[in-house]
């Protein structure tokens, strides 16, 4: 009974039949299993185990974040953490809780500002590329453009970060006055380009899923390509397009290397993108790569910030998955 996905149900949901004696008068046969297939069973157990491992990974993430986070919150109030406007976790005596402020808002605001800048770049460019690829491009142009996007997606984030710091910040410094070499504008813009492939490819998927008949209907009414794209295809693919943007937000919030390298490590509450400010991921990377003795307050705070980051991206991801399923269902 190991062979099919519905055998169990079929056998289980079956009535006893007619109860009539069979008409066959000839020889009988044995339809039972001729030899045991232990290998099949072992393999199935292995496959099931591999699939459940992914659930174990999620549980592992939650557990590894939760235990130290609980310790953190026995010393720091939840309110003081979530709404405090000052973060001085790295200062003072490494093993004392009380001489520091644990307000996470500076990290959250910096994350939000970099994300907004990144989206300001990624959404128009990514959607423009998606519309072009889905509605305008010939097969030949697609053959060139798709690899361009793939290469863009394949460049390591540490490389983006390095270029943001050493190339784009100096270029931007000609236009904007920066106080230090670290700022949020340059990593934000570079991160935007990093996210373009995500938005573009998911957006294109969503628009390609719109049935041809809808477009033809629009053309038949005399609408040109632009009107068809904006009034028919775009609204029809909206949930998928929103999902693409939402996933872009998730990538921006979770991106670590670009901001760690180019946005600096000063946790400060500022809304000025010309300033350098540490993001949530930047803080995690800084503490991990440096001086956090195990068991020290700042070590625990790493997990608290990590838990917040995980919770935020989880919500964003679930929203995106929901939106994608919505458009998959419609078409």
């Amino acid at each position: 009974m190991t062979t099919s996905r519905s055998t169990a149900e079929t056998a289980g949901g079956r009535s006893s039949g007619s109860g009539r004696p069979p008409a066959w008068r000839g020889s009988t046969i044995d339809l039972g299993q001729q030899h045991p297939r232990y290998g099949e069973r072992v393999i199935k157990v292995i496959l099931v185990g591999a699939a459940w491992l992914s659930v174990a990974v999620t549980i592992g993430i939650v557990v590894s974040l939760l235990a130290p986070t609980v310790t953190f919150f026995t010393h720091v109030g939840l309110g003081a953490f979530l709404f405090g406007t000052e973060w001085t976790g790295g200062f003072g005596n490494k093993f004392v809780w009380d001489d520091k402020s644990w307000g996470v808002l500076p990290l959250v605001v910096a994350t939000a500002i970099v994300t907004v800048i990144a989206l300001a770049v990624a959404v128009p460019l990514g959607l423009g590329a998606a519309i072009y690829l889905s509605e305008y491009a010939s097969e030949r142009v697609r053959k060139v453009l798709k690899p361009v996007l793939e290469v863009l997606a394949g460049i390591p984030t540490v490389v983006y970060g390095f270029l943001a710091l050493t190339i784009f910040t100096p270029i931007l410094a000609n236009l904007v006055q920066f106080n230090t070499i670290h700022n949020m504008l340059s990593p934000g813009i570079v991160m935007g380009f990093m996210i373009v492939p995500t938005v573009a490819s998911l957006g294109e998927d969503a628009m390609s899923a719109v049935p041809l008949a809808l477009r033809q209907g629009s053309y038949a009414l005399g609408a040109n390509r632009m009107k068809t794209t904006l009034r028919v295809v775009f609204p029809a693919a909206l949930s998928g397009i929103v999902a693409a943007i939402v996933l872009g937000i998730s990538r921006a919030v979770g991106e670590t290397m670009i901001v760690t390298i180019a946005a600096g490590s000063r946790a400060q509450l500022t809304f000025d993108p010309r300033e350098g400010a540490q993001t949530m991921t930047g803080f995690i990377a800084q503490i991990a790569s440096g001086d956090a003795p195990q068991g020290s307050p700042v070590y625990y705070s790493l997990f608290a910030v990590g838990a917040l980051l995980f919770a935020v991206t989880l919500l964003i991801n679930l929203a995106s998955i929901r939106l994608v399923r919505k458009y998959r269902q419609v078409y």
Partner: peptide, 28 residues
């Protein structure tokens, strides 16, 4: 549920996997 879980894992920030491995493999 497994499927949803995998879709979510694909979008979990990379740095979180570092925390997981730190907690279970490097230490723990």
């Amino acid at each position: 549920a497994i499927e949803l879980n995998i879709q979510n894992l694909a979008a979990v920030p990379a740095v979180i996997y570092g925390i997981l491995t730190l907690g279970f493999i490097v230490r723990g």
